[in-house]
C-alpha cells in the first residue's frame, strides 16, 4: 500500500515528536490512526516510518572480508 503524498510530512512529524520524547507509544499510535484515517491505514504507515526490523544489512554479519 502506498503512503498518500499529501500526508507524508504530517506522519513524519508525528513520528519525530514521538521518538524524540517520552511520549507513550499508545499516544503516538492514536494520533497516527487519527491522521491516517483508520487503523488499517495506520498499520500500513507504521513500517514505512519505523522499519520492520527485518531490513537487509548492507554488509552481512557473516561477511568473509571481516
Amino acid at each position: 500500500m502506498s503512503i498518500p503524498e499529501d500526508k507524508k510530512e504530517q506522519f513524519i512529524e508525528l513520528f519525530d515528536q514521538y521518538v524524540h520524547s517520552q511520549q507513550p507509544r499508545r499516544e503516538f499510535l492514536q494520533k497516527l490512526v487519527k491522521a491516517s484515517g483508520g487503523v488499517a491505514a495506520a498499520a500500513a504507515v507504521l513500517p514505512w516510518l519505523e522499519g520492520t526490523g527485518a531490513e537487509a544489512a548492507m554488509v552481512s554479519p557473516g561477511d568473509n572480508r571481516l
Partner: peptide, 30 residues
C-alpha cells in the same frame, strides 16, 4: 575489523536513541 590486516585506526560508532540496533552494527561493518 577487516580480516587479516595489521593495525588500523579505530572508529567508534555511536547509536541513536534506541540503543545498539542491527542497523548500527551494519554501519560498523561498513
Amino acid at each position: 575489523r577487516p580480516k587479516g590486516s595489521g593495525k588500523l585506526p579505530a572508529v567508534v560508532v555511536i547509536h541513536e536513541n534506541r540503543g545498539l540496533t542491527p542497523h548500527i552494527q551494519d554501519v560498523a561493518r561498513r
